[in-house]
Design a binder for these strands. Structure first.
Lengths: 376, 376
DNA sequence: CCTTAGCACTCTCGCCTCACGAGTGCTAAC
DNA sequence: GTTAGCACTCGTGAGGCGAGAGTGCTAAGG
């Protein structure tokens, strides 16, 4: 009964989605014909819409009132109907420029990526800090703040830096500190957590037992590595909440009922972003696969996310360090634009990191274009 | 006509505020009598309420429907009626414990303070990172990440640390780096920005001109100090948005009209917190004065903040470093609790910083109790 | 002069009804 | 397969109504 998915029906599906993304109101057959000058009558469009509904791509909330896409409809759109676009050169330039301005300040990259993503995709954005696949210690520096307080800077392969203040007994000279730091650095150089724990237990370097101070430093490093390792679920940064909340989904269209729901949605959204609930499960998945992942609505089963789509991409340097960034917003989302934004910023960040590690440092002028994106 | 502000009227004002803070609904004369077993009749209370209204401390939104406090009413309450409380020892202990767990990790203190403030005061919280009154350079360390990339760690008096990656030409040994960093540290040690700029211009140490590499490093430091100095308005961290948004102010009490306003309020609030608009002007003020500042509603003229109260306190070490932290929420706020929370956390942070700087390091066991709080 | 009971008045809230209009689904003709 | 015509559905908004809450006022009482 449903009939085949003819060329025209695909066009109609595409137009319904475009129109709905634009206007946020259910789209009627006549509107479509008028606005896009279709060479058929509204009645024909209605028939096709009914077919698309039976195929599961459209639905209508009320008997009257136009059609809206289902999750499956968006899915089909993303995979088959959407043309692959790139950000305009002007936008790419603007974004690169912003990153250029904080070059060197590694710790600001993630924040900046979030801010730019949000502004460009007009939705909320999320990102995790880049994380080394395996943490390997590199060196320790001690910097005196005053006589009884030093700042311990631990550097790990992959460039992750952790700083911590540490009280010491007074009377140590800078030379003392340097020697102690050198000893610890030598002892633990290039070790992973488990090896570091072993070495901490023996507490000798070349047969010479460590001093109490040095052992304290070793413990400090080991604890820092443990903390890092334990912190199983990555902290998720986010930005652009306001950007997302100015989407019409969060306006009370009409009726008190709707208003209440809008507020509830707002609160839920905040919770998702703050806690990462419903979001964290997606991270490992995105880390594992290359390309851009698109998760539409309730596809991954998390009920809290039923009304949201997430577009995620991995960024980083193969085999060294990786993180995830993406966009989150209502399922009614400008997928082409969001996807290209995510793809562009992920590749930009990857190039920046590659430059930092001096591997494969192609100029970040061109957007790399992975052959095929992964879809959930 | 308005009559004097008798003892009883003050009591009634206090009870109205208490009740309104609890229930978030306008309070009626009869409720008051019943709930607090007043030895007078509702009619008497009504008369007093009318007097309080003429005095500008109360108002009522509709002819029917009970009274609510005005900004002036809250102000009088805060200054004259409210009893000064402290957090319970149990709560104090819990808070101290949380700070204890991140001791040493200076960069997390502000975040933690925000989180704790929000949870304890059930409202949103804001804080600025501690900022040195005058930035003075201390030392520079260079840590090789790999052959062509170093991490420059700049330490300033006051313990502020800034890190930045820096590309270098390959072939430099760790010893090279150490020497260069040492030279720059010696040259710029203890300098303020203006002096550092002068020294950068001459580019000699003890008459010996600097190498190109060393000059690059000096420039790096100067730029970092400039950036710090220029960044006129402090970045404001915040937390507890959700905490605040679950206040009944942000629920649609009834009617579609109200719902729309609730959503608008929500959006505005977000904007205030994200951008700091309406908040930033308060920061310098709070930095300048000791004690706890309470700004109620539209008192400071900023229209965007008309419905909010802010409670701010300065924290830090006199003459060395200072920041601001506080609570923001609807004017209908549990002032005693919020104020004591802010006061406690500010003094805790101050003690922790004092310990770090080894000045005046009293144990942070007792809440310091400043003699008098400043009110706007 | 302060307090209190009584009472009329006001205003919100929730509920219902009703008419309107948008958009569909169906049927029959092309 | 397409189209015109038409009945039908249902959300939306306006208007009305009754109930209830709480006040302001007035007059009586301590």
């Amino acid at each position: 009964m449903s009939g085949p998915l003819t060329e025209r029906r695909q066009t109609i599906l595409k137009l319904v989605i475009q129109e709905f993304v634009d206007t946020a109101t259910p789209v009627a057959s006549e509107t479509l014909v008028r606005k896009y000058r279709l060479p058929v009558s509204p009645a024909t469009v209605r028939n096709d819409m009914a077919a698309l509904e039976e195929l599961g791509f459209l639905t209508h909330p009320h008997t009257s009132g136009g059609r809206i896409p289902t999750d499956a409809g968006y899915r089909f759109f993303v995979e088959n109907l959407m043309e692959r676009t790139s950000l305009s050169p002007a936008e790419q330039r603007m974004i690169r420029h912003q990153f250029y301005q904080v070059r060197g300040e590694l710790d600001q990259w993630v924040q900046l990526a979030c801010a730019v993503l949000a502004r460009t995709a007009h939705n909320a954005s999320v990102a995790t800090a880049p994380r080394a696949e395996q943490l390997r210690f590199k060196s320790l520096e001690l910097i005196a703040i005053h006589e009884t307080m030093v700042l311990a800077v631990m550097v790990f392969h992959s460039g992750i830096v952790k700083q911590q203040t540490l009280p010491i007994e007074p009377g140590r000279t800078p030379e003392d500190l340097r020697r102690a730091a050198g000893i610890v650095s030598d002892l633990l150089a290039d070790t992973t957590l488990s090896r570091a724990e072993e070495l901490a237990a023996t507490a000798t370097l070349n047969g010479v037992p460590l001093s109490d101070f040095e052992r304290g430093l070793v413990d400090l490093v080991v604890r820092a590595m443990q903390a890092f390792e334990e912190q199983a679920q990555e902290q998720i940064y986010s930005d652009g909440l306001l950007e997302m909340l100015s989407q019409p989904e969060f306006l009370p269209a009409s009726g008190r009922d709707d208003a209440e729901r809008a507020i509830e949605r707002m609160r839920r959204t905040l919770e998702i972003l703050k806690s990462g609930r419903g979001l964290s499960p997606l991270i490992p998945q995105a880390l594992a696969s290359g390309g851009v992942q698109v998760i539409i609505g309730g596809e991954h089963g998390e009920d809290a996310m039923r009304d949201y789509s997430v577009i995620l991409a991995r960024y980083g340097v193969e085999g060294a360090i990786a993180g995830v960034l993406g966009v989150i917003g209502p399922t009614r989302m400008a997928y082409p634009r969001s996807i290209s934004t995510v793809r562009y910023i992920a590749s930009l960040m990857s190039n920046l990191l590659a430059e930092l590690y001096n591997v494969n440092a192609r100029p970040s002028e061109v957007e790399t274009d992975p052959q095929d994106d992964q879809h959930a």
